[in-house]
């Protein structure tokens, strides 16, 4: 018996491992995601019961010996009517439940943290908005959120349609060029969650990930203050050379580093590049080696992205990677 069940337990275990983790709709860490999870399970349960019932009826009907009878018409009418009524009731019920679950999802409150997320091929620009201009800052591919505080996202797109989806926290919402969408949710638990673009947006759609770091209000405030400041001053000759390379080569025409002369707006803001966990939208972990590899040949690591290979000699690349890795 054990040998017979074993082949079944392995795939089942593998399936269940997909239910938890940092990118799963079945492991909710926000009220909005929990509502959706209840909805998913309700639909699965109702549909399973219906499917099993229909299958059983079908099997019974196939196996039953046919008896010639002519008095079953009334009974048949009753059965069919009951089935039609049941279908109508179930579908209406599911529609109402689904409507109720999604209705409250867009609600916001006055104290919400206002963030603008703009989708690009293939990365996310994240701007923390504030009524005061000196409190606004821009980062990329990483959202830091204080736990328990509602966040209100303004979703925009620069080129094609993208979709914001962090399954542990909330449902999907499209980012559409020329039409701003909004999305609100309240992260309920400290943790690191992964999101992904959920609308096919081109060649590197699969490499368009987003990290959401939900932290305590204190450490969020600490992070926010760090992001508001200018970039770290280069220490040592190598980092200083790296800064000069960045400012004088093509890097500066697309990227912005606050506190340097580089002020491009085409590519991600690199002011605090090294404080982010990943580069190139979740492609590589941030460290000096991966930064150097990326700069040396971005089109091999992520073909089709908009970063060109800028010709640098070995010492320039070395200095540049040292400088970029120092931008905490």
């Amino acid at each position: 018996m054990a040998s017979r069940t074993f082949p079944l337990t392995l795939p089942t275990a593998l399936l269940c491992s997909g239910c938890t983790g940092w990118q799963s709709a079945l492991d909710p860490h926000a009220i909005q995601a929990a509502r959706l999870e209840h909805l998913i399970w309700l639909f699965v349960a109702v549909c399973t019961v219906i499917w099993v019932t229909v299958t059983v009826v079908l099997v019974v009907a196939l196996l039953r010996r046919r008896t010639p009878s002519t008095h079953n018409d009334t009974r048949m009418t009753r059965v069919v009517s009951a089935a039609v009524v049941a279908t109508a009731v179930i579908i209406t019920g599911l529609t109402i439940v689904s409507f109720n679950a999604t209705r409250g999802m867009g609600s916001s409150d006055a104290n919400a943290l206002e963030i603008r997320v703009r989708g690009y091929q293939w990365w996310w620009e994240v701007t923390y908005l504030d009524a005061r201009a000196d409190q606004v800052f821009t980062t990329a591919n990483e959202l830091h959120l204080p736990v328990g505080r509602t966040v209100h996202l303004q979703l925009a797109a620069a080129d094609v349609i993208h979709s914001f989806w962090v399954p542990n926290l909330t449902g999907k919402q499209d980012l559409i060029p020329g039409r701003d969408n909004t999305l609100s949710f309240t992260p309920g638990e400290i943790g690191v969650y992964r999101g992904q673009c959920a609308e096919f947006c081109g060649l590197q759609h699969a490499h368009m990930a987003l990290l959401v770091i939900v932290e305590s209000a204190g450490s969020f405030e600490h992070w926010r203050r760090g992001q508001l400041g200018p970039a770290a001053t280069p220490r040592g000759a190598e980092e200083k050379t790296g800064k000069a390379v960045f400012e004088n080569k093509a890097c500066a025409s697309c990227h912005n580093i606050q506190g340097s002369s580089a002020s491009g707006t085409v590519g991600p803001d690199l002011t605090h590049l090294a404080s982010r966990r990943y580069i190139a939208s979740g492609l590589l972990q941030t460290n000096r080696g991966s930064i150097a590899a990326w700069v040396a040949d971005p089109q091999t690591l992520k073909p089709g992205n908009n970063m060109p290979r800028v010709t640098l000699d070995a010492s320039e690349l070395n200095a540049l990677s040292a400088y970029l890795a120092s931008l905490q």
Binding site: D297, Q299, T300, P303, G304, R309, T311
Partner: peptide, 11 residues
């Protein structure tokens, strides 16, 4: 589409 020019070709 050619995404990556070999450095000698670019030069």
């Amino acid at each position: 589409r050619s995404f990556r020019l070999d450095p000698p070709i670019a030069a």
